[in-house]
Amino acid sequence: MSRAPESAPPARLDHHALERYETAWLGVAAVMTALLFVGVLASVVSGTYPLLDAGSGHAHDGPIVRGRVDPKNLAATPFAKPGLVVDAAGQPLLNDQGTLDAYIVAGNFTFQPAVLRVPAGVPVTLHVTATDVAHGFEVTGTNINAEILPGHVASLTVTFRHPGEQHAICNEYCGVGHHNMITRFVVDPPATGAKETQ
């Protein structure tokens, strides 16, 4: 076969070319992964979303230890009075970390309080627990989204910039009434005279 073929078959990828492309791609993949990690880490550090407490960050009245609570004995905890913690005059009370506290109880296909009201412009720490099974706590229009487990307290601190009305939706399957477990979540305008933070 000394005669060259009239139309040469297309050159196929050979071993060496493939290796070059592979190495380049592996490098691209590694760089992309590193950038992604750094980007997300920057977002976490700069606080673009509320981090969940790991069970030691907040001092509570009553028997809440390391983020754990006895679901049969919520009466002895601040969860006995769901809602914003207020003083005798009905004014929101700052805790020793400079935030307001709001306690929320999920159970029996409802949230307590039935309508949660928090003020805008002040950091509020939401503490949520469940009485029966796992529930979810998602506030529409925000990136507040936590698993609510009986025996555990999910705590996260948020500052609502704007007043308005949203909904808290249970987003973890909790039984036949799951789809009706929705409640109003109201952010009130900053109270006049209330101490502004930031």
Partner: peptide, 9 residues
């Protein structure tokens, strides 16, 4: 489990 409580960040 990012949304789970009581796990170190």
């Amino acid at each position: 489990q990012y949304a789970d409580p009581n796990v170190q960040n």
